[in-house]
Simulated scan of single mutants.
Amino acid sequence: MTLEQQILGSIRSLPVQQQHEVLNFAQFLHQKAAPKSPRRSLKGLGADLKIQITAADIDEARQEMWGNLPREIV
């Protein structure tokens, strides 16, 4: 008896709800084993927008966001 036949025999003896659980688990394992596509960098995502952000722009945005934050917590 092959492994496939053993698996099918075991699954057939389960109630339908548990057969669905086995199917979900098999799909999960299949998805987990699938090769993943490489992630794109955030810089690459906005490359076509032709926006140049300088360190001064970042510092200004930080100051606007966090400038009024109290330095000490009592």
Score class of each variant (00 low, 15 high):
1 M>T: 14
2 T>M: 11
2 T>L: 11
2 T>Q: 13
3 L>G: 10
4 E>M: 11
5 Q>R: 12
6 Q>A: 14
6 Q>L: 12
7 I>K: 15
8 L>Y: 11
9 G>Y: 09
9 G>F: 09
9 G>Q: 13
10 S>M: 08
10 S>Q: 10
10 S>P: 01
12 R>F: 10
12 R>I: 13
12 R>A: 15
14 L>A: 07
14 L>I: 04
14 L>M: 07
15 P>R: 05
16 V>C: 03
16 V>L: 11
16 V>T: 12
17 Q>E: 04
18 Q>C: 03
18 Q>Y: 03
19 Q>Y: 02
19 Q>F: 03
20 H>L: 07
21 E>H: 04
21 E>M: 02
21 E>C: 00
22 V>N: 05
23 L>Y: 06
23 L>D: 07
23 L>I: 09
24 N>F: 02
24 N>G: 10
25 F>V: 09
27 Q>E: 08
28 F>L: 06
28 F>I: 04
30 H>E: 06
30 H>R: 05
31 Q>M: 02
31 Q>T: 04
32 K>A: 05
33 A>C: 03
33 A>I: 02
34 A>C: 06
34 A>N: 02
35 P>A: 02
35 P>Q: 03
37 S>I: 00
37 S>C: 01
38 P>A: 01
38 P>Q: 05
38 P>N: 05
39 R>N: 09
39 R>G: 14
40 R>M: 00
40 R>D: 03
41 S>N: 06
42 L>W: 03
42 L>I: 02
44 G>A: 04
44 G>F: 00
44 G>Q: 01
46 G>L: 01
49 L>K: 04
49 L>Q: 06
49 L>P: 04
49 L>E: 07
49 L>V: 03
50 K>T: 09
51 I>S: 10
52 Q>W: 05
52 Q>M: 11
53 I>R: 09
53 I>F: 08
54 T>L: 09
54 T>F: 05
54 T>V: 05
54 T>I: 08
56 A>D: 10
56 A>C: 00
56 A>H: 06
57 D>F: 10
57 D>N: 11
58 I>A: 06
59 D>E: 15
59 D>A: 12
59 D>I: 14
60 E>H: 14
60 E>T: 08
60 E>W: 13
61 A>G: 07
62 R>A: 13
62 R>P: 01
63 Q>H: 13
63 Q>L: 15
64 E>T: 13
64 E>H: 13
64 E>W: 15
65 M>P: 01
66 W>E: 08
66 W>I: 09
67 G>E: 15
67 G>P: 05
68 N>R: 13
68 N>Q: 15
68 N>L: 15
71 R>F: 08
71 R>M: 08
72 E>Q: 11
74 V>T: 12
74 V>N: 13
